[in-house]
Design a protein around this nucleic acid. Structure first.
Lengths: 304, 304
DNA sequence: GCGGTCCATACGCACAGAGATATCAGGCCA
DNA sequence: TGGCCTGATATCTCTGTGCGTATGGACCGC
């Protein structure tokens, strides 16, 4: 890529003159006087090394060299104008691509409203959403495989979260998930200690250590260590296991939305809540991330 | 076509930096110090309105906006470089198109050598050659339908030739064209007056008035007015008519080259010569015309 | 903690070039 | 022949900006 030889201003004058074929009119279109235009063209011709126009009195015409240069100059201008427009669109966040990781359990709660709100404001942005549990989202954020994550129980900033930022989107209570036929399902509220002897279904600790440990902690605070007999990667799966009688589980309240027959969701006592947060790279310059964070804060759906 | 917003120098710096992703190296490649490069990029970013690079300590990377602008800038540069090269090629006459009109009778004499010589020197130039008689060539030159004409007996500059220039390429004697069986064909030289009673074959006056009038003038100088019984547009045709016994004719000596059986070519007395000239628009800026004129002057074949 | 790397900033200089005004020269038409 | 249109030329001004040196601040590796 050599250093550019032809100033764009002169090429602009050239293109306009090639269209007008009249120095006075071209100068008017350029918003300058006629002598400067003559100079521009002259300088350009000096640099090219050949005349670009023939100036017979009365009519200005392109030379062969000018005819070669004209389309190239036009292409260069449209290239630059298009590129500039595209760069500004991306820079301002009106267009581009945003990769969002989300916990599967949010697909029925915050996610739809958030996506709807964002798409209304930025219809030109392509959203790549992919379902992932908490720990993979952290890794994907750091690897720049996703730009934003919607996850449960974010890590502390000074631990795994270095370089990442998180903001709580909402908190929700835990509920007990029981088979419908289970005796405790007859109660409106289940005291946690009553689950001490039940087999537990839990998510693998790898998927989201803090949420996992929080659940264990709740049980221990209630005076027992849960006996985990099954693991399931998804809450839906966990509920299905509960329904088949393989155990009970504690889950975020939004899990009610899946309306699985054969399982009952009951408030627990003592009360406990889990946080849903949005996470991103703290130094990400993308305006799309900023826009999404605004949308999270603004969207009334996400506040429920 | 709007006024260009982005100086090419800054775009150049941008492209190089995007390739190096290192201010120091990019500045070295540009042959400048590092601070000026930082300024260039900064100014460009100001004009675009968004950051084009992220400068995390240790690594420089393109932003989304930068990624949009980069290919456009590259395209613009290659467009301009190609266009400039093409314009210079055409401007210097290394390439382009040259339209040449020529009299059919020259196809066997000056034309082949001329074209060969020109093509050797300018292999990139496309030659459009078209056979035309003298008068149409004059009109075609003026209408810019051809750029150069090879013709016989050019008009005077102050008459039809206004704005056109001519240069004599060669002169050649007239010869008498006779049927082989004609009694005069037995002589080596034919005195013109001996043709006084013969029917004449001539080209139409419209095709080349000066040549036509010159032939008539020769006869009248010899003391008779030729009785024209046939017209033929081409010398070849005229010779064929002579062969069938429809008359005799006077033709430029190069007509011997057609080696038609049944006709004899004989020198005439008094001697008389006809001129072959090259013609062009006096104000034609095309370097190809100049090159062709040089070739006409230089080519040894054309001097024969 | 210390030097080294890397980029940004500050300041100054110099020059190209873009602009204006005024004027000139060549054709064209009345 | 004189007015008019068109484009070129001359001269001046001034701004943008390209480049340099000097310096500062952040981060990294030893």
């Amino acid at each position: 890529m050599d250093r550019p030889e032809l100033p764009l201003a002169q090429l602009h004058a050239f293109v306009v003159l090639a269209e007008e074929l009249h120095f006075g009119h071209a100068a008017a279109r350029l918003g300058i006087a006629q002598p400067p235009l003559s100079q521009q063209i002259r300088r350009l011709e000096d640099k090219v090394g050949h005349a670009l126009f023939t100036r017979e009195p009365g009519r200005v015409a392109l030379t062969g060299a000018g005819r070669e240069l004209l389309p190239a100059a036009r292409r260069a201008f449209t290239d630059l104008a298009d590129g500039l427009a595209a760069a500004r669109a991306v820079g301002s966040g009106r267009t581009g691509r945003l990769r969002i990781g989300f916990a599967a359990s949010l697909a029925l709660t915050v996610l739809p409203g958030l996506l709807r709100g964002f798409r209304e404001r930025f219809p030109g942005v392509r959203l790549d959403i992919r379902e992932m549990t908490t720990a993979p989202q952290i890794a994907a954020l750091r690897d720049k495989a996703i730009d934003v994550g919607l996850l449960r129980e974010p890590p502390a900033d000074d631990a795994d979260g270095a370089g990442l930022a998180f903001r709580t989107v909402l908190t929700e209570p835990f509920v007990a998930v029981l088979p419908s036929a289970h005796p405790l399902a007859a109660l409106r509220t289940v005291r946690l200690v009553r689950l001490a002897d039940e087999p537990f279904v839990l998510l693998p600790r790898d998927a989201g250590p803090r949420l996992h440990d929080q659940i264990i902690g709740l049980c221990e605070a209630a005076g027992f260590t849960p006996r985990v007999t099954q693991r399931a990667v998804e809450w839906q799966t966990a509920c299905a296991l509960v329904e088949t009688g393989l155990g009970v589980c504690l889950a975020p309240a939004s899990i009610r939305r899946i309306r699985l027959k054969g399982v009952a969701f009951r408030a627990i006592e003592p009360n406990a809540r889990t946080r849903v947060a949005v996470g991103w790279r703290a130094d990400d310059p993308s305006p799309l991330v900023a826009h999404l964070l605004e949308t999270v804060g603004r969207d009334p759906d996400s506040a429920r």
